[in-house]
Design a binder for these strands. Structure first.
Lengths: 146, 146
DNA sequence: TATTGTTATACTCTATAACTATA
DNA sequence: TATAGTTATAGAGTATAACAATA
């Protein structure tokens, strides 16, 4: 258990991180929104999946996910194939163009982060990643009011 | 220096953190936006300041800051006093009502975080805070494209 | 009936640009 | 002229609710 003061500080830090995300988003290719990048990243990492599963991974409403997917499909970055198990649903799969886009995104993110974090050790970056992952997991399934 | 893979993972984590922020925002009092909460927090922490300084702390454009401040002032959470040094500017100061609101915000944030992070040690929370602070600082003044 | 996904609508946050008042 | 702040406008992201198709 942590102290109240720590929790307040943590809440403040979370606000600041939004600015970092905006900064990072500026390096993305012109018509690739952060939303597109994360959708494609999930499809590459976890493979073919349904809309509902994707929404769950992204922790956003399916209505929003649906629009992000439509945007990416319109640009040829992903494909929707019939789901043999359920005709209401379709399976989402990243396309070769989407893979190519992700390689570009990864390059730019990496370059931006390498520039900004040049004085960080790989160990500290690793620690930050580990703690952020744990932090996020602590919120999984917590969409009710306390 | 970290590896490319680490940077990619870090970029993914940052996307996830947005969901955490949304979750946390749900515990705020009805007409208190996350923006109001952070504006008031800054005024409490750093004291009276000008609009430009506040925008810099929040790392958002002054036009946006101006609207957040107008919103908070309309609800009596902060006051704008003449700046004796520059009549174009006004000094922003948190009001007693704003302080009261912040106490409520702090209570709810704390309760929400305590619930979600019950299996975290104070040390790990401290490490996360420290790393997030350093991370944010590494981005300060980096609003250009690489 | 319940569930999967889509669409319509509204709200929040943000940035850019044009503007006012003062330095 | 330059700067501090405001306002108008536009764009991205999200949630809720109503809806269509299928389970």
């Amino acid at each position: 258990m942590a102290e109240q003061e720590q929790y307040e500080e943590l809440a403040r830090q979370l606000s600041s991180i939004a600015a970092v995300r905006r900064d990072l988003a500026r390096v993305l290719p012109a018509d690739c929104s952060p939303a597109s990048a994360i959708v494609l990243t999930m499809l590459r990492q976890y493979g073919e999946m349904r809309m509902g599963k994707l929404a769950e991974l992204l922790m956003i409403d399916m209505s929003v996910t649906s629009r992000h997917v439509a945007y990416a499909e319109a640009r040829g970055w992903l494909e929707r194939h019939p789901d043999p198990a359920d005709r209401r649903s379709r399976l989402l799969r990243i396309s070769p163009a989407g893979e190519a886009l992700l390689r570009q995104v990864s390059e730019r993110y990496t370059e931006a982060l390498a520039t900004r974090l040049q004085d960080w050790s790989a160990e500290d970056v690793g620690r930050l990643i580990e703690l952020l992952g744990r932090f996020r997991n602590s919120f999984d399934g917590c969409r009710t009011r306390t």
